[in-house]
Design a protein around this nucleic acid. Structure first.
Lengths: 246, 246
DNA sequence: AAGTGGTCTAGACCACAAC
DNA sequence: TTGTGGTCTAGACCACTTA
């Protein structure tokens, strides 16, 4: 058997299309040849063509619109949405996000009491299972074109002896002013990771095929670096760039 | 026709496995039933089973090992690698990365001269096409278990009238000391995005199926916030968490 | 040798979008 | 009505891993 093994046919097809997309033969937004066409061109059956296309979808190079065709997604240009990360304190004492976006909670925002799972307890430096006030909202901005999932967690232990023992504190960013009123000096650290969304996340955030999810965990700390609260942001990784000063 | 359309069979299979993975029926690291088994259990053909499995692979929930079987990838635990982002200046004037990792360039590291493409020119605030010194290296750390692609770009225009007009400056982080010697006070900003890797990137960085790529662009600025240099980091998004102080 | 996943065929029928 | 992609079958043969 020859040491040089031929590439699989579906890979050749994927490679052909990928090349065409990256070198401009198939310009962004334009339709690609139909599956039937490709099957004829390459002399293979349609399932084989579809297997090649599945690769391109998984890598986010291509968008398929049912009944219409397959289209090139805009390639490696810079993302169009830049979101500087940070919290600014206004002269009037309010805290605002550095990206200046105005987010609106969807109708199904909730306030609940939950017990800290391991991953959150770790970041908050509390024992796993400790109760926390929890805000949960799907937020939109820019007339619904931008979406993010936002959760705020505040451990009960942080609120002992305050007016928030019975009533839930506000969600971030209003939470910051409330914590400052309680006498805390606030610092923030963000933890960032990325992964592919689960189907329900993809649906809620309208994440297309082949686009990763960006997850940001923001920990609010006091002057002694003791964690006071935690926020979780989940954002579509598509067409998004975030920035940090060092 | 009933308005309630049944889910596609391959989706039911994917959903069954996904549930089992998330609720612990199929523990991490354990093999899942073989394709043949699943085909019999669900009364479908093997290609249908494979279509369902393809979904799980694309979302990174499952790892398939040729000839051995399909295994559950450790699910939504916290990533095990934490890399704080930042640059520290040592008392002796050296600059070091805040994550404290020791990276080794692979054998194929190169120094070239390239012309700035639009995306880089934008970040460096130079005209597109302006020449730059370019370092390019695939780096490894922790005995090869960690990998990243690292590129350093320095526009010629920054080096006019310095000893680096003829000879390329060192790559970052040594570059920082060199720029400091030239009298610059250094500041840094990082820009972050995520996307699925292309096949060559996935191979070079050993990124498994369904794992996104994290791209970090670090701009080095002088006291007037004029960009002096640019670094590009490409990291496997798998099992990785990075952190920033705000 | 047995069991696993990888590739591929040659069709079929359906759902959706555009004309 | 036509063309597109979405789903599915019932096999076949191959490559790889483990025993």
């Amino acid at each position: 058997m020859p040491p040089e093994k031929a590439q699989a046919k579906y890979r050749q097809i994927a490679e052909h299309l990928r090349q065409g997309i990256l070198d401009g033969t198939y310009p962004a937004g334009q339709p690609l040849p139909s599956e039937e066409m490709l099957a004829q061109q390459f002399g293979v059956s349609r399932p084989t063509v579809r297997q090649g296309i599945a690769e391109l979808r998984a890598s986010g190079l291509v968008e398929v619109m049912m009944g219409r065709g397959m289209f090139v997604r805009s390639p490696q240009t810079r993302p169009s949405i830049l979101r500087p990360r940070g919290v600014r304190r206004e002269p009037d004492g309010r805290y605002v996000e550095a990206d200046g976006l105005l987010w609106t909670d969807s109708e199904d925002a909730t306030v609940t009491r939950t017990d800290a799972p391991l991953a959150l307890a770790d970041l908050l430096r509390i024992p796993p299972g400790e109760p926390m006030f929890t805000h949960d909202a799907l937020q939109t901005a820019d007339r619904g074109r931008l979406r993010q999932l936002h959760r705020t967690y505040v451990p009960f232990s942080v609120l002992i002896g305050t007016k928030y023992e019975e009533e839930a504190p506000p969600s971030a960013p209003h939470l910051y002013a409330a914590l400052a009123e309680l006498g805390h000096e606030l610092h923030f650290t963000e933890y960032l990771s990325t992964r592919m969304p689960l189907p329900d996340q993809a649906q809620a955030l309208r994440i297309p095929d082949g686009v990763p999810l960006l997850q940001i965990m923001r920990v609010t700390l006091n002057a002694d670096r003791k964690p006071l609260a935690l926020e979780e942001f989940q954002l579509p990784g598509d067409d998004l760039e975030i920035s940090y000063p060092l």
